[in-house]
Design a protein around this nucleic acid. Structure first.
Lengths: 229, 229
DNA sequence: CGAGCGATTGAAAAGACTCAACCACCGTGG
DNA sequence: CCACGGTGGTTGAGTCTTTTCAATCGCTCG
């Protein structure tokens, strides 16, 4: 349980920070960050923010995974992105001065730090590295979403599932992928039943291994081929 | 013909500029822009840039429309965005220091200015308004693409077409929408034949009017309803 | 141990795509 | 001026993927 291991994280020594967008922050800015951020423990299935509400700051995930999604007609979720430890979440809406257009919910236990808008935005003016990092990150995500759209429009569900599993493999690193069938279906953009049938196919083809809800990719090369690359 | 009206556009008096992201540029920066940009006339179906090549600067559309698209398997285009006069195009890839992930091609005659990377990027450091404008624009587009993805995943082709026509209506302002059936299909993410059949339905339902290839939306309210809003 | 939710399976229906043929408009060249 | 060729638009029919609905299973947590 993360809860037992919970402690206030120090920005100055935080390895997550050093590897992410905030890595460019130095000197007194780090101290300022350290003094003004807050750390929180989240249980599974807790919201960080909800579509329609207004952003008050940015979330820095220390440990755990969260889903970023949007609700379509009838409330069905479309998962746009899955964020993991080290990722910065929710900073886009801060720039538009607009309400969130997506929601964020924990997929498991998480430790997440929060930096208020008033503490974050001023750093942009004084810190070119942070600024450029964010421009780069936004641009990269924009390109990712162009891919996402193209896949959605042109690939079969089978191909999209293969592609999604490869993405999830990256996100879950060495660990087996651990998502509900429904979340996985909402990520791929299909019906839960269809997803289950296709997973079964992959299993029978020896591309993946399934343990209850946990999935491991056995043959990434074959998977890539199925995805159409 | 635009070609006959072609002239070198002056940044200092350019109304397009004043209304877009570059509107925040003032004083000597404008002069610098003026001295270093170039203006070009483009015929229909000319590329501005191609997926895989490296960006050398940013395009500022003065007049005309262009499509931003990506090729999927088999070369089929997925149109991600349609840009019009006043829009800035191709600046994302500049920040990632990476190759273009999409291509851009004129849909009609265009007058387009070009600003080299070396002239554009330094302005970011000296001009907070420009910088914030770009952050805002990137964030806004990111939100748009989340919508796009959700629509693609959850809506029927009929609903998506309705939604697309509303978007196109905005882009074409008062003028009738003037796109080839194929481009329109590649925007909606469907087969050309399916698109044609659905357009016919809309026509019979009195929602649109078709003149050869030009389409006018007659009943935007009904269209919105069909789109699922 | 029982309730309940998530996972799974089957069968039927619907939506969309593919393929093939045909049409219509337009510019070209004889 | 008209026949020709070509491209883009349209229609029809058949097929296939994917969804939907309904029912069942099975694990997990009080």
């Amino acid at each position: 349980m993360l809860e037992n291991n919970f402690r206030n994280i120090s920005c100055s020594t935080c390895l997550r920070r050093k590897e992410n967008l905030l890595g460019g922050i130095l000197g007194e800015d780090v101290e300022h960050l350290e003094d003004h951020k807050s750390c929180n423990y989240y249980k599974k299935n807790q919201y960080l923010f909800v579509e329609g509400s207004f952003p008050r700051g940015v979330f820095c995930i220390n440990e755990g995974k969260i889903k970023i999604f949007k609700r379509g007609d009838g409330g069905k979720e479309q998962i746009i992105q899955i964020a993991k430890g080290g990722d910065l979440v929710g900073f886009r809406a801060m720039f538009t001065e607009d309400a969130y257009k997506v929601s964020a919910e924990t997929l498991e236990e998480c430790n997440i730090c929060f930096i208020r808008k008033e503490d974050f935005l001023p750093m942009l003016d004084t810190n070119p590295m942070l600024r450029n990092g964010i421009l780069k990150e936004l641009s990269r995500e924009l390109a990712d979403r162009a891919d996402f759209i193209t896949n959605m429009a042109q690939k079969s569900v089978r191909q999209r599932l293969a592609f999604s599993l490869l993405l999830l493999m990256e996100i879950y690193q060495d660990e087996p992928i651990n998502l509900s069938r429904e979340d996985m279906a909402n990520f791929v953009g299909t019906a839960t039943e269809t997803l289950i049938r296709l997973l079964k196919d992959f299993k029978e083809e020896g591309i993946i291994e399934i343990n209850t809800r946990k999935i491991s990719v056995l043959d990434a090369k074959k998977m890539l081929h199925v995805a159409g690359y």
